[in-house]
Amino acid sequence: MTSPTDADVDAESRVRPPVHRWLWYALGGGLPARHRSWVLHDTTTRTWGMRHVARSLVQMAIPSALVLAFVPSGWALRLAVVGGGVFLGLIFSLAYMAETTEHRVIKAGYRPGTAVHLREQAGMAAQRRESERKRAAAAKRADRYRRRAGG
């Protein structure tokens, strides 16, 4: 197991899996070692929450299709059952989002806590950038006020 500062985290070494492997990954399967840095990117990028929801919806697609195809009742009831199942599934999925993504990172060969650590670092950097932007805007407003006030 290696640290998140390894060279394989670089964007150049990131190899996106083909569709069939991504579907396997979305269903909980592991990916080959060449996709290792992509898994880390997938679970730590700015859109990691939306990516998690997309994987969850893929997981729920199979039972939803089976219910729609084989439950012997009207379409209204089938759609209601699928809708309720997807709703509850998403609640459960969102409740365990951090743990699930961390498990994917561990399965890819990183140490436990790697994804959380990288997301926290990215969040702190974003907060720093936002604070600097606000400070610069406040200084600009203060300067404009001083010039208008004749000071």
Rank of each mutant, 00 (worst) to 15 (best):
A115Y: 01
M50V: 15
A26F: 14
A115N: 08
R144G: 10
G151C: 14
W38N: 08
A95Y: 04
R36P: 03
F92E: 06
G85Q: 11
S131C: 09
R135I: 04
A69E: 14
V82L: 03
A65M: 14
E130F: 01
R111D: 12
A69V: 10
R144I: 02
L94Y: 06
G30I: 07
T43R: 12
V19A: 13
R128C: 06
I106N: 10
R129F: 02
L118M: 08
R133S: 10
V58I: 10
L40Q: 07
R128Q: 11
R147M: 13
R36K: 15
T45W: 06
G83P: 07
L88N: 07
T45P: 02
G85R: 10
R135Y: 02
R144S: 11
G85K: 05
R119V: 05
R51H: 14
A126D: 12
E12Q: 00
K134P: 00
G123R: 03
M60L: 15
L90T: 07
H41S: 03
M50P: 02
T47M: 08
V58T: 08
T101P: 04
V71H: 09
S131G: 10
G30L: 06
A139E: 15
L77P: 01
A126V: 08
A69G: 06
P4V: 11
R119E: 05
R147E: 13
W75H: 08
I106Q: 13
V86S: 01
A136L: 15
W48I: 03
V39P: 03
R146M: 14
R34W: 03
W24F: 11
L118F: 05
H117W: 06
R141Y: 03
E132P: 04
G83S: 13
R144Y: 14
Q127C: 04
G109M: 07
A115Q: 04
A122E: 02
V9G: 00
V53T: 12
G85N: 02
G113R: 11
R21T: 03
S131Y: 12
H35D: 00
R144K: 14
A149E: 13
S13E: 00
S93L: 08
P63I: 14
G83I: 14
H103Q: 12
R111H: 07
L68S: 12
A125L: 06
A76I: 13
G85H: 11
T2Y: 08
T101Y: 01
H103P: 03
R119A: 01
V39W: 10
P18Y: 01
P72N: 12
R129D: 10
A136P: 06
S56W: 04
E120Y: 03
G29N: 08
P18S: 09
H41T: 01
H20V: 10
D8Y: 01
G109C: 09
P4H: 07
V39A: 10
Y25K: 11
L27V: 13
H20I: 09
